[in-house]
Amino acid sequence: MANGPVYRMMVFMSKRMIACDEASFLISLREDRKLDFRRWWQLKMHLLSCHLCRKYAHQIGELEHSMEVYRDGCSHESCTHHLSHEAGSRIDKELSQELNAK
């Protein structure tokens, strides 16, 4: 039994199985670059059996979407901060000193 084909198959599989740390790393990595086949397959197998990492993958998708919303929003009014009056005049002063020094 210990040397049977099923056993050997299981050893073979477990050596290639990844835990949640690797899986979540690959979920992040695939946002930035294409996974090679081995990693793609390892992730796929892990996700089949791990509901936490399936949730994680979904939420990383939501994070990407949120950052898209963030980027769009910040090019518009909602993200505008105003330079305080004091800071504005201080910088103005520095600039004109520098200009006059020329």
């Binding site: 949640c20 936490l52 990492c53 949730k55 994680y56 979904h58 939420q59 939501e62 979407h65 949120s66 950052m67 919303v69 963030y70 929003g73 910040c74 909602s78 993200c79």
Partner: peptide, 23 residues
């Protein structure tokens, strides 16, 4: 430390100002 729910975004329309603040 792993995810607790399927989704962290609230259902319905996304409240943009709140999202910005949290991010």
């Amino acid at each position: 430390m792993g995810p607790n729910s399927h989704s962290f975004l609230p259902e319905g329309e996304l409240e943009q100002a709140e999202l910005m603040k949290f991010i």
